[in-house]
Amino acid sequence: CHSECLGNCSQPDDPTKCVACRNFYLDGRCVETCPPPYYHFQDWRCVNFSFCQDLHHKCKNSRRQGCHQYVIHNNKCIPECPSGYTMNSSNLLCTPCLGPCPKVCHLLEGEKTIDSVTSAQELRGCTVINGSLIINIRGGNNLAAELEANLGLIEEISGYLKIRRSYALVSLSFFRKLRLIRGETLEIGNYSFYALDNQNLRQLWDWSKHNLTITQGKLFFHYNPKLCLSEIHKMEEVSGTKGRQERNDIALKTNGDQASCENELLKFSYIRTSFDKILLRWEPYWPPDFRDLLGFMLFYKEAPYQNVTEFDGQDACGSNSWTVVDIDPPLRSNDPKSQNHPGWLMRGLKPWTQYAIFVKTLVTFSDERRTYGAKSDIIYVQTDATNPSVPLDPISVSNSSSQIILKWKPPSDPNGNITHYLVFWERQAEDSELFELDYCLKGLKLPSRTWSPPFESEDSQKHNQSEYEDSAGECCSCPKTDSQILKELEESSFRKTFEDYLHNVVFVPRKT
């Protein structure tokens, strides 16, 4: 048989008469490798580009789960590009990614509803959504962080984005990388972005840091009482949809009607710091009717980097990364020049730590249904340095008659930039024990000054392991946590139920 035959053949030295091919099969003959313009397919066939392209389009058009959109890589027609490569849609070739590779997620039936953290986790790592997304989240724990972890990498949506009755959302900033909504599939009414009845939605994105392009379709905003109209108009300008909307697409009466839409800028007039305090004062603000001013709200939190936005980490279910302080308005003076500047002394802060701070007014709604208010920009203030805590785990070892090696770990709280350490030492008198000992005694162990690591005695271990207080009263049991108490109650309830079950099964009433 021919060298490319495997198993047997019907005619000697003829690659077209093989029972099976050793390498690849091409047009009725066995070959060692697939010549151009053919590609290896499933490690035994040679196919042309049209064959591989037909497989790709067949799966793409069917949208069946589990099928493969075949691509070409290293002269092979394979189910998908290997790690580190992405497909070129024009020629199906796998090309190296520039940075992290995109991950295209194809949605069944063309859309997916995100109504819980669990459903959001199914899209973790996706960068391109081939379909439409509907966000409908009523509640949950730590929602802002969970949504950002699972949806934060999405850069492109081919269909539309719909935010509907998501009472738990305060902001859409968890879509931190969303840059493009194509609108290839539109919501009824030709809408590519749809926001309806979101009672706590206050911000779409921080438009000073976020760009969003909507290729096709219109915007729809109705019944978002805490979303200011200025935020919607800003989205029109940034996304390129200005002029597409009709009169009733953006409701003037049901958007922002319960919001404090600040239209003035508060400026800080005085800032002073110490290692654990920050004193702030800002310019006074009074609405047209000074009785509408209820006070100020001061927001602050630790910020290692200057990239904080107002609604980071917030949701309507209680999660809030900001510390909020309510401040009463100052006494009002008739003389504008003698107006008191409101302020606040922030206490209990960490030394040498940068804080993000902003302040906003708290006002009631005027009778004319106009909203007044003022808010400052987010500023960054760093507390002063102070003395560091003591170095940890000092170790001293003498390696000769004239040297001592000293080692330690950095302090747990540096409280500033540590530039150097101060080492103090003092000579001590020799131990009298060394002169009084009889060095001729056998088995004498000389006193040693070398360091030995501390260890816990058996008594201390027994005390720590004991669940009861000892007789001397030195140790006591740790208080039980809520989960331990709940577990004990469940076990007790189970024992009672099981005992009742045994009584009912074992003891049967005697027939009379």
Rank of each mutant, 00 (worst) to 15 (best):
S132K: 02
W282R: 00
Y194I: 10
I134E: 09
T241G: 15
S402F: 10
I114C: 04
T113V: 10
S119G: 13
P342Q: 06
I114L: 09
S402A: 15
K337L: 09
E184M: 02
L280T: 12
D315M: 06
K218S: 01
R347T: 12
Q382E: 10
P391T: 04
K242C: 15
T215V: 09
S158N: 06
C261N: 03
E109W: 14
L178M: 10
K177D: 15
S321P: 03
F299A: 15
K112A: 10
E302Y: 03
L265R: 14
F358D: 01
L186E: 07
L298Y: 01
G189P: 13
A356T: 03
S260A: 11
P329V: 05
P336Y: 02
H222P: 00
A374R: 03
L362N: 05
I181R: 00
N334P: 08
P330F: 12
G189V: 14
S400K: 13
V397L: 06
E111R: 13
P288H: 08
Q339V: 08
A374W: 05
W322T: 02
N211H: 11
Y167R: 10
L172G: 02
W286A: 06
D312S: 08
N136M: 03
L108R: 11
E231V: 04
R179T: 12
Y305C: 08
I395G: 10
D367N: 07
F268H: 01
T127M: 11
E231G: 13
T383E: 00
F358T: 04
A120H: 10
L133N: 00
L161S: 00
I379W: 06
M297V: 03
F221N: 01
Q403V: 03
A251M: 10
N200Y: 07
R176Q: 14
R179S: 07
I163A: 02
S274Q: 07
A168T: 14
L349R: 01
E231T: 13
K253E: 12
G139R: 11
R244C: 06
M346S: 03
D206K: 15
F193N: 01
L201N: 00
E109A: 07
L133G: 00
S239D: 02
E236A: 11
R291D: 13
N334V: 04
K218P: 11
L331N: 14
